[in-house]
Nucleic acid binder design. Structure first.
Length: 707
DNA sequence: GAGCACTGC
């Protein structure tokens, strides 16, 4: 149900009495945006052709303005919505706030947003910003997306898994909805020649049955991208028109090195000092690949400072990366002390997710740490690889947000020319089990023949189909099973976690599994500052279970719960929040992660209640819980070898327990693990001790044939 | 002995 957190502030007519001069100023700004000059043309294109690709650079105003143009042009009459998807929550939320202000309406009325755990829409919402993942979830309940007259997919060039799946889905929904409209009224002389072979394609590759969309008017699509290759989107959508909208960025001068650098960390450090001594005031943003590198550059800069002339030591470094607790992330946004130059040492987080003000200089070593997936071994890896040209452009753009800037690329121009144009779409480098489960639930039976923009490898598809079959989500002919597969698809979790939840009701430990799954679903729970490692270790020990990390995570969750219940009965929400923050800090727990886990927990709990699963606790008997883990994580089991390493049974890979595991030293004979990621070695994380006999007993379909 | 970035009715 939609919630309206601020409904008591609502004006009788749903609008907010705003300061007139501010409204005037906003209107002025809107009119001066580059996109404003093509408003009529865009609306006409969408009205006549049903689909449009918009290529708009940063600052064009496309995200905030186009939905307003569409509203004005009548696309929301008879209660239909304009939906706008974003890859990231923050973007959906902040853009919606901005647009509500521009429209002079209360957020959640005509303009709203919906992201996981936070719905700011109401019955009167007509322009709805949301995450692309959320729209995919909506499609499970409403396969024709019948509420929407137009869907705008923003930032499509980022090619996240969600965006790619959504584009494929929208293509078939659009086809289904316009076909039937054609047949019924015989109008819609669409330029989209895909209509020529209707029916056939819709039945073989589309999820939607022919004729079923008859009830709904045609769906308009707008694909918005910041990259220059509108071509691939256009081709995918049957030669759709593409319109370029100018951006509004300040110029950024690009500098390359004359020779290839052997050590880009050292080169970054040298460049920082060069900028500091030779260039005008302005902050520096340095892109590095991870925490370790960031800490090492911090150290190098600190060591170098005393060698500088005294007047030149006015420089401060600030780290920012995703796993850093929020309070420390905030420091990157604070202005440097007067007279100091701020150097932000960032991972990819600063490329798109956060925008730090005041950046005039960018230092780009041209590398990024990227996730990859090997379908043959089933191993995910984190590798440092060269960026793409598009990424390099995105990074340099960070220097031109507030004025002219400079970007120092720590590689030669020749090397730049050799870079790939764009980053490999995520769908080609991840485990597809979740994607396939969702597609199956949407009615797509033929995954290998499915019309992806870019097809994942056949091996990746087959591997995930097998995994889903082994988990019981698919039948022998690879159809979604009932009820297991259907239930699993409903849960917004990794398929293995969903399976664990469903099984746990039979093992009488759904209470425990809900907590474990919520904790496993979020980013790292513990945060250990480098300078307090010993202290952190003793703090974390208080939660440790000799049985493994899953029970340790449950202990953390429950300790926090108990703490919150013990002293907080009469406290305000604000006070509880503060107490929890303090508790997390004292216990070296990342507060953001734990809050996230609590949100996941309550969401998933609602789901399993609705499904009618029996919520029971195994109490002290954690053997039940571990047996349930074995029964659901059997694909992730490993046996200790004489040399202390482990052999993962499903893939025969040699792996090691990650040093952060409570079982790192204990090294039990047989374990199940949550994930296997290759960095310097094959590490398994979140590990629990099990009895090897349980595997043959509880997963005989997989282990009976092996001995 | 070590942790890219996102996201989910």
């Amino acid at each position: 149900m939609p919630t309206m957190a601020n409904s008591h502030f609502k004006q009788p007519n749903g609008t907010v009495s705003n300061n007139d001069s501010r409204r005037q100023k906003l209107l002025q700004q809107r009119k001066s945006l580059p996109i404003a000059t093509v408003e009529k043309r865009l609306v006409e294109e969408i009205r006549n052709n049903h689909i449009l690709i918009i290529v708009g650079e940063t600052g064009s105003g496309k995200t905030t303005q186009l939905p307003q143009y569409l509203f004005k042009a009548g696309f929301c009459h008879d209660g239909k919505l304009v939906g706008v998807t974003q890859p990231r929550r923050v973007a959906a939320v902040t853009v919606a706030k901005r647009v509500a202000e521009e429209c002079g309406v209360q957020l959640g009325q005509r303009v709203g947003y919906s992201v996981r755990f936070d719905d700011m829409t109401s019955g009167s919402t007509r322009i709805k910003y949301m995450t692309d993942g959320l729209l995919l979830r909506e499609a499970l309940l409403d396969p024709y997306l019948s509420k929407y007259s137009v869907i705008v997919v923003d930032e499509a060039h980022e090619r996240t898994v969600h965006t790619d799946v959504l584009l494929a889905l929208l293509k078939s929904v659009q086809k289904a909805r316009s076909q039937t409209a054609n047949e019924l009224v015989g109008r819609e002389n669409s330029s989209n020649d895909a209509n020529l072979e209707k029916g056939k394609e819709a039945q073989t590759t589309g999820p939607l049955k022919k004729g079923q969309g008859a009830k709904f008017p045609p769906l308009r699509l707008v694909i918005m991208s910041a990259s220059l290759d509108a071509q691939i989107f256009s081709e995918y959508f049957g030669g759709a028109k593409a319109v370029h909208v100018q951006g509004r960025q300040f110029p950024v001068d690009i500098f390359y090195t004359l020779h290839a650098e052997t050590d880009y960390v050292e080169a970054a450090m040298v460049t920082i000092f060069q900028i500091h001594s030779e260039e005008a005031p302005g902050d520096i943003l340095v892109f590095l690949t991870g925490q370790e590198e960031i800490e090492s550059v911090e150290g190098l800069v600190r060591d170098k400072l005393p060698q500088l002339p005294e007047g030149n030591r006015n420089i401060v470094t600030v780290p920012i990366y995703a796993s850093l607790p929020s309070e420390q992330q905030m420091k990157a946004f604070m202005p440097a002390p007067a007279g100091f130059r701020k150097v932000i040492l960032a991972t990819n987080i600063a490329e798109t997710s956060v925008t730090i003000p005041g950046i005039k200089y960018v230092v780009d070593p041209g590398v990024v740490k990227a996730r990859n997936y090997n379908p043959r071994t089933g191993i995910e890896s984190l590798n440092v690889i060269p960026t793409s040209k598009a990424q390099a452009l995105q990074r340099s753009g960070r220097a031109g947000r507030e004025g002219a800037g400079k970007c120092f690329r720590l590689y030669t121009e020749r090397e730049f020319e050799k870079l790939a144009d764009s980053t490999v779409p995520e769908i080609k480098r991840c485990n597809l089990s979740n994607v396939i489960l969702q597609l199956k639930a949407l009615g797509v039976d033929d995954i290998i023949g499915f019309d992806f923009m870019e097809k994942p490898s056949r091996m990746a598809i087959v591997k995930s189909l097998e995994e889903l079959f082994l988990l019981g989500a698919l039948t022998e002919d690879y159809k979604l099973s009932d009820p297991i597969g259907k239930q699993m698809a409903r849960l917004p979790l990794d398929p293995i976690y969903s399976k664990a939840l469903i099984l746990s009701s039979q093992f009488n430990c759904l209470e425990e599994m809900l907590i474990a799954v919520a904790m496993l679903s979020v980013e790292s729970i513990f945060f250990t500052p480098r300078e307090k490692q010993e202290e952190a270790r003793t703090a974390i020990k208080r939660f440790s279970s000799t049985e493994g990390d899953h029970i340790t995570l449950i202990n953390v969750y429950r300790s926090c719960d108990e703490f919150l219940e013990s002293g907080n009965a009469n406290n305000s929400k604000d006070k509880i929040f503060k107490n929890m923050k303090k508790w997390c800090k004292d216990n070296f727990v990342n507060g953001r992660s734990l809050r996230h886990a609590r949100d996941v927990h309550s969401q998933i709990r609602r789901h399993v209640e609705q499904m009618g699963l029996r919520i029971a606790s195994c109490g002290e008997d954690m053997i039940l819980f571990r047996r349930c883990l074995a029964a659901s994580f059997f694909l992730n089991a490993a046996l200790r070898q004489p040399d202390g390493t482990y052999r993962a049974l499903a893939s025969s890979q040699i792996v090691q327990i990650h040093p952060t595991s409570v079982l790192f030293r204990a090294k039990p004979d047989c374990i199940v693990f949550n994930e296997l990621v290759r960095t310097n070695q094959n590490y398994i994380r979140d590990v629990t001790r099990i009895d090897p006999m349980w595997l043959t007993e509880l997963a005989p379909h997989f282990y009976a044939r092996q001995d």
